[in-house]
């Protein structure tokens, strides 16, 4: 059952990722990116990291792809007909990606996978919240400052003044 779910999700992820880079209409690419991100959330659920899956849906499916779709909708060339995606260097890309794959496979086969003696921190939201509020208080507040900087920066850059 686990294997079946994994393979269905893997096919969904790879298929939609392929659509993202090959489809001609860039708006459809963005929609397939949503499907790809959503399937990755499914992988997180298989790994019993429900909170990470929820974050994946909230941030990547909800927010990041919204930004991309907005960016597509805001572009000039859209008026009249759809933007065409052009892949200029498929051979170079294929070469780089396949060499990356070979390197990754080499590294994976060379690594000895040791089983952890203790079962780490639970990925549940409660445990994360407790860790954020006790051990990682300072990084937690720094996140707030980073978000503030991002917000102010976005406004300054987008208004151009």
């Amino acid at each position: 059952m686990f294997d079946l779910a994994f393979y269905i999700l893997a096919v969904l992820i790879l298929g939609s990722a392929l659509m993202v880079v090959t489809l001609r209409n860039i708006f459809h690419c963005a929609l397939f990116l949503v499907l790809c991100m959503f399937s990755i959330a499914g992988i997180y659920i298989l790994l019993e990291a429900e909170f990470i899956a929820a974050v994946q849906v909230l941030i990547y499916v909800g927010a990041v792809t919204i930004l991309m779709i907005f960016a597509v909708m805001l572009t000039h060339q859209l008026t009249g007909k759809t933007i065409r995606q052009v892949n200029d260097q498929p051979i170079a890309a294929l070469f780089i990606i396949s060499s990356l794959l070979v390197l990754t496979l080499l590294a994976l086969s060379k690594t000895t996978w040791e089983v952890a003696s203790s079962s780490g921190v639970s990925p549940s939201a409660t445990e994360l919240g407790r860790a954020l509020m006790t051990v990682y208080v300072l990084p937690f507040e720094v996140v707030s400052v980073v978000l503030l900087v991002a917000l102010v920066g976005a406004i300054v850059i987008s208004r151009g003044d």
Partner: peptide, 22 residues
């Protein structure tokens, strides 16, 4: 700009969930 502000507060929201749970 609305989309950008939405993303910022979406990330903030993510931190609210573990806080509320704990």
């Amino acid at each position: 700009i609305y989309a950008l502000i939405f993303v910022i507060f979406d990330v903030e929201l993510v931190f609210l969930f573990p806080w509320a749970a704990a």
